[in-house]
Amino acid sequence: MRRIVSIIILIIIAVGFIFAFSKIPFGKDKINVANYYIKKGIKQTGAVNIVTSVVLNYRGFDTLGEVTVLFIAAVGLGAVLFVERKIQKNMDDKEDKTKRASLILRTGSRLLFPLILLFGAYIFVHGHLTPGGGFQGGAIIASGFLLMYLAFPKQRINKKTSGLAESLSGLIFVGIGLLGLVFSGYFLTNFLPKGIPNTLFSAGIIPIIYIAIGFKVGFELTGIIDDLLERSR
């Protein structure tokens, strides 16, 4: 019964999709507002990666919201999976102490971990020049931490420090926005000098915000992994 009703609903939606998609031709040039970004982006923001200039400058408010959504997920996960300290300790004692990862995994991850962090940092520092940016770099950094968790299941990151880093980098983002409000009257304005396009020190506030986002996303995703590992036992 439930299956038949669902299939009828899906067929209705599918018909809607077919009709709607037929009105949006695939692969045709239908760029409208974005032409402005493509033509004027480099001059106005100093970033050669137009996607970055859209993400952080023309639509920077979305990105602030997006950072907030990830922050909510990390905080909410901590709240939902929260366990009182005492119970936590007891469970740690009971746990099997002999569980260890294999030698290859431990040695390999020791070798790879700094390189992964370096690569993540490279991605978010060069967000305004090459494909990538804060979110991607942060995800790479978190993957490095995930590797460490697999290799050394006993080790934990310091939750207090990572929480502070999260809120500091969030505050830097909002603070830069408010500075824009002070200097030029608009929230999140690119008020710093734009520099010469295609060099590392260009594009005003964009690299600074991307570095903050990189740290924030890296710590938040690591915190999510940590919570899921620790609290779900």
Binding site: A34, G41, V51, E66, G133, L228
Partner: peptide
């Protein structure tokens, strides 16, 4: 068009957030 790529970036992050909370 650069705008949908920026939108997808946002949508992916939101998807990750919902997924993490759902699993918890």
């Amino acid at each position: 068009d650069p705008v949908p790529q920026a939108l997808v970036l946002t949508a992916i992050v939101i998807g990750v957030a919902v997924l993490a909370l759902a699993l918890s």
